[in-house]
Design a protein around this nucleic acid. Structure first.
Lengths: 140, 140
DNA sequence: AAATTTATAGCAACTATTTTGCGTTATTTT
DNA sequence: AAAATAACGCAAAATAGTTGCTATAAATTT
């Protein structure tokens, strides 16, 4: 199946316009098995676009439940496609992330669900994130 | 027991100099049950010090296994005292963190250990982090 | 198909965060 | 007390992300 077609479908189903950069961004994410930083993306994009446009596209995708964010160890953010459709800011990406200390990539471990823990009564829980650090297969 | 005495001991045992700001920083952390951002710290410090000094002190503490860092949801960093002595960058703070979406504070839930999950064979695991978001008791 | 509407791109400028270089000051060592 | 050196503090720069505004290009309507 064609990535372009999929990208177009995603945009349309969320009422977002079919622009060049957005199609490109989505296709890049679809080819990726790990989360990307804004810098990664900037390098991977064909034409050079304004950083602002990139930020706005990512935020829009995040708000529409297309991408989810996950903080990396350096105080930055990484983005990756949501598996199922997440609605707005209520993301269901409750899978673990793995950050390689060597290549610094963030991998989404879809098959690993975030385990539950008992939290104190007086805390109200909204979401959880589980991040592992180590060395990925490529970097061994 | 005196916090000042404890702070002095920490510095001395790591071969760090006993300076005013470092003693202050350590004492602040000892009185806290949650992780602090650089901004939090800056507000809490008695005299106003250069941000650079603060950053350097924190980095030094981190490298010496006195403090550990944990990323917050906004792409920033929070610092908290290590429970046991961690050696250099090999931190053992494998407890969960709770970030309040309302007051934005990060709490160290020392009593909640990070649960183990099975990771794929080909990944080499070094550390794990478990972060929860929600509303803390004060903000309910 | 042309006109209208509206979301998005792109530029400039700004804020916030963190780092680096370097001369000065203060702590520790001799 | 003098020497050695770790840490401070200022200036400046690198990095990250945001906001306001205008221009442009999709989508919608006529």
């Amino acid at each position: 199946m064609k990535l372009l077609q999929l990208a177009e479908d995603i945009l349309q189903s969320h009422g977002l316009r079919r622009t060049q950069i957005r199609l490109e961004i989505l296709q890049i994410f679809m080819k990726q098995d790990h989360a990307l930083s804004v810098n990664d993306l900037e390098k991977m994009l064909q034409a050079s676009h304004d950083r602002v446009t990139l930020y706005r596209a990512l935020n829009s995708f995040e708000e529409n439940g297309i991408l989810h964010q996950t903080p990396d160890q350096g105080g930055g953010m990484r983005y990756a496609l949501c598996v199922d459709d997440c609605s707005g800011h209520h993301h269901k990406d409750e899978h673990a992330h793995f950050i390689c200390d060597s290549c610094n990539q963030t991998f989404c471990l879809q098959e690993i669900k975030v385990p539950d823990v008992k939290i104190p009564e007086d805390y109200q829980l909204n979401s959880v994130s589980y991040t592992m650090n180590g060395v990925c297969k490529e970097c061994q």
